[in-house]
Simulated assay, not measured.
Amino acid sequence: MPQPQPATDGRSTRWDDHRAARRIALVRAARKAVHQMGPEVSMDEIATFAKTSKSIVYRYFVDKPGLQLAVGEAVVEQMSVALSEAAQLATTPRAALESMVAVYLEMIAHSPNVYYFVTRTAPGLPFLESMNEIVAVPFAQEMNADAVDAAAWGAGAVGFIRGSGEWWLLNRTEPGAPTREELTDRVTAWLWGGPVGVLARGKP
């Protein structure tokens, strides 16, 4: 005989909703603070920017790496939406690859400070693993690659795009440096002409 379910405490539900909304607001405030003040921004500065106390920030994130991880998750979610929209417009595998590269480079160009905040510390690894999972592996699978090849290519592709993108961030104001659009074209061509050409198996 099914056991009766315990009654839901309305006050508890409202409190959970409040905490979830407050956490989202703090992540957004932290992201804006990092964007404006740089990746070395302190928790005190983030709390001031969010118009709250540092103790409140720590109540939701425990420590700075926890906040960095939460910001990274928000960035990944935003990129996932952008990639999904771009993938719907891509008519060929090469166009899908170009969209993947373009979305990544657009993200780091929009806010290098936020990018460094979520990648240049211990929490950076989960961020990059997420990029591999939502960006590169699905693309490799579209090429009919098996799971092992898709995982290996995905990790390599994200590493290649990351390295090229970070080089560009440091050198984009130098004479002769490519624009973001030019770098997108070049990285796409390099990836397509290399291992991805094998994965494509004759696709246009």
Rank of each mutant, 00 (worst) to 15 (best):
I56F: 09
I56G: 01
I56Q: 13
Y58V: 09
R59P: 15
R59Q: 15
Y60K: 02
F61G: 01
K64C: 06
P65H: 00
P65F: 02
G66P: 05
Q68L: 02
L69S: 11
L69K: 06
E73K: 15
E73T: 14
E73R: 15
A74Q: 07
V75G: 05
V76M: 06
V76S: 02
Q78N: 13
S80V: 02
S80F: 04
A82G: 08
L83K: 05
L83N: 00
S84L: 12
E85V: 09
E85Q: 12
A86V: 06
A87R: 12
Q88I: 01
L89Y: 05
T91C: 10
P93M: 00
A95L: 08
A95T: 11
E98F: 00
A102G: 06
A102Q: 10
Y104G: 09
Y104E: 07
L105M: 04
L105N: 02
L105A: 02
E106K: 09
M107L: 08
I108A: 08
A109T: 00
S111C: 03
V114I: 10
Y116F: 13
R120K: 10
T121P: 05
T121R: 10
P123G: 01
L125E: 14
P126G: 05
E129V: 15
M131R: 10
V135C: 15
V135P: 09
A136V: 04
P138D: 01
Q141H: 12
E142N: 15
E142M: 15
E142H: 14
D146N: 03
A147E: 07
D149M: 10
A150I: 00
A150F: 02
A152D: 09
G154I: 00
G156T: 10
V158P: 04
F160H: 09
R162S: 13
G163Q: 05
E166M: 07
E166F: 09
L170Q: 11
L170T: 12
E174M: 13
P175Q: 01
T179M: 06
T179G: 06
R180I: 14
R180K: 13
R180G: 11
E181S: 08
L183D: 03
D185E: 14
R186G: 07
V187A: 00
